[in-house]
Design a protein around this nucleic acid. Structure first.
Length: 562
RNA sequence: GCACUCAUAGCUCAAUUGGAUAGAGCGUUCGGCUACGGACCGAAAGGUUGGGAGUUCGAGUCUCUUUGGGUGCACCA
């Protein structure tokens, strides 16, 4: 239902353009003022009148009736109040009719979005920083899918580079296969950290590492076997985590995948005269030295990170013909992506504007920034397990007879962690602490899950809702707050997608939960008056539906009870 | 040094993209289950939106400036 259009149709435009009025209509800051309003300030010049006078004129000429129950001019705003019962009936029936499709649309039909996210590094720990990245990417993936886009999730594996030479040297010196099979990446990290310590004392280790990496490049059998072994160990562990986080990918084409796809890019840059020599290396320079040059080939002929990303960009364009290509990567890489995108612009491809770096913050520890080399990391699995254990303890305390405790603890614990990293806007730096992750009260995942379970519990008590519904049973402020939030959900999804900000959905889930819990305390739902009870159950059902839809987009489970 | 970015209540963060009295949670103090789940709800206290100037009907939001933090700046990824 397009209520903005309804308002435009109900007023005397007095020469104003209908569309521009339409675009201005928003919900007032304070819902007590009304359901929608027109701020009249922008018309002041055109109409040569004060906003206050314009608002009064519009309000005086507005037709009242049907949905529009009251129109009032206040300080340059025209506030419209809806008929609560009618609004409730329309909004709730809309949610219930569409069910799990409520909020979805087909606006992305025929368009493909590539999302590069998670992009794990082989033989490195999966820590809180990766979790943020992975959760963001996964949520954006689902949000775009809900809007009808064809989405391609790409895990651009960090499976190439000199660090694998280092790892082989470390493995041959101190590696213990039994230990690695048992402890996985942790064991690899241990010897990797040790390598960097020993390297300071014995610089010849660096040369050995370079040689071993060269051996990988040259296809040496032993080197490749070890490299594949490290990769298998890492992927096995990471897959286990992805399963728990409800994450999947359509492509695992990582850095090594582009080994044979870089030369054509270099050739094209050369042909266009963009690739120039500088100190023996090949670079692309930017006009007016806007940025440092983009280094694409080392003086020894080897390719670099940027070369791979250029090759990947072309490959993705050719393979998927994307509408947009998103890179969910921390803001550390700002310069890198600015350079890549600028080079694409200089090369005259007409899709450089479709490349978007969805930059997010860094996650640090109270003991400083995370570093694999320095050994200052918290493994994500430890965080997840701790959160699940806490959830289990809370259930044992509050709901000891609950069936299926283990599974529910998993859902609640992981939900808390995911919700926590998706709650703030992605650009704000985060300091990880167990205290924050283990908080299950207030603006948290468990709070929203609890609200969801509370809805279920109401149906257990009241039975299913009947057919006779009196929407006048929803005619008070707390009901209205819930209904206007429910009505807003599709717009929330669009906003979240447009901003590449899952936190818009996360915060909405909290807002809706708060509004519902207030409603719950102020209205008796299980009343003897059936039509009133049915109206309140309809609202409960709609809230449960929308909370479930929203949490689903975030990758968070909705246990029936908890 | 240059570029990017952040700064809002004691703490963690919002603010419909320039709109009405800047809002939540945590923490603190007080109150609430014979009404359906207290992982909840209500109330109170808490603000010169880092400082200064400007743009205009109107600025937390835009511009300039200044301070403080983070990140990046050529053969790592």
């Amino acid at each position: 239902m397009d209520y903005k259009q309804l308002i435009v149709d109900s007023i005397d435009l007095a020469g104003l353009d209908g569309q521009s009025v339409y675009d201005l209509i928003v919900a007032p800051k304070d819902s007590a003022m009304g359901d929608l309003c027109i701020p009249c300030f922008k018309f002041a010049k055109e109409m040569r009148k004060s906003p206050v006078a314009i608002a009064e004129q519009i309000a005086a000429g507005a037709k009242i009736g049907g949905m529009i129950k009251e129109v009032k001019a206040v300080a340059g705003f025209v506030n419209f109040k809806f008929d609560n019962a009618l609004y409730a009936s329309q909004a709730l029936e809309n949610v219930l009719k569409q069910g799990e499709n409520y909020g979805k649309s087909d606006e992305g039909k025929g368009k493909t979005i590539c999302i590069d996210y998670s992009s794990v590094n082989i033989a490195k720990p999966f820590h809180m920083g990766h979790l943020l990245n992975t959760a963001l990417g996964g949520a954006i993936y689902r949000i775009y899918k809900a809007l009808g886009y064809n989405v391609v999730g790409i895990n651009h594996l960090g499976d190439w580079g000199t660090q694998f030479g280092k790892l082989i040297v470390a493995y041959k010196l101190w590696g213990n296969k039994e230990d690695i099979n048992k402890r996985g990446v942790r064991a690899l990290v241990d010897i990797y950290v040790k390598f960097h310590k020993e390297e300071e004392k014995d610089p010849s280790l660096s040369d050995q590492a370079r040689e071993w990496f060269k051996a990988i490049e040259d296809g040496d059998k032993e080197a490749l076997e070890l490299f594949e072994y490290f990769k298998a160990i890492t992927l096995k562990e990471v897959d286990r985590i992805y399963k728990r986080l409800n994450i999947s990918f359509d492509s695992y084409a990582g850095e090594s995948f582009y080994n044979d796809k870089m030369q054509p890019v270099l050739d094209e840059l050369k042909a266009k005269g963009l690739l120039v020599e500088s100190d023996g290396a090949k670079v692309v320079k930017f006009e007016d030295d806007l940025m440092p040059p983009c280094l694409l080939q080392r003086s020894d002929g080897a390719t670099l990170y940027a070369t791979r990303d250029m090759a990947a960009a072309f490959y993705r364009k050719n393979t998927y013909d994307f509408y947009k290509c998103l890179y969910v990567v921390a803001y550390q890489q700002n310069l890198h992506f600015q350079q890549i995108f600028k080079v694409l612009e200089m090369i005259d491809c007409d899709w450089d504007k479709d490349m978007i770096h969805v930059a997010h913050c860094m996650v640090s520890l109270e003991s400083g920034s995370m570093s694999t080399r320095g050994g200052n990391v918290v493994f994500l699995e430890d965080v997840l397990n701790t959160a699940v254990a806490k959830a289990k303890a809370v259930i044992d305390e509050k709901n000891p007879t609950l069936a299926g405790k283990e599974e529910i603890a998993e859902q609640v614990g992981i939900g808390a962690v995911l919700f926590g990293v998706l709650y703030n806007s992605r650009i704000k730096d985060m300091v990880f602490s167990f205290d924050k992750v283990l908080n299950f009260e207030g603006e948290t995942g468990p709070y929203v899950q609890y609200t969801y379970a509370r809805c279920n519990s109401l149906f257990d008590k009241c039975g299913e809702m009947g057919n006779e519904i009196d929407y006048n049973g929803l005619d008070n402020d707390s009901c209205k707050a819930v209904i206007s939030l429910l009505d807003k959900y599709p717009e929330i999804l669009r906003e979240s997608a447009k901003k590449y900000e899952p936190s818009v959905v996360t915060r909405y889930a909290v807002d809706l939960s708060q509004a519902f819990n207030k409603f719950y305390f102020e209205n008796k739902i299980n009343t003897e008056r059936e039509p009133i009870k049915n109206a309140r159950l309809a609202l409960t059902k709609a809230v449960r539906q929308v909370l479930g839809n929203a949490l689903g987009l975030l990758g968070i489970a909705t246990p029936y009870k908890m």
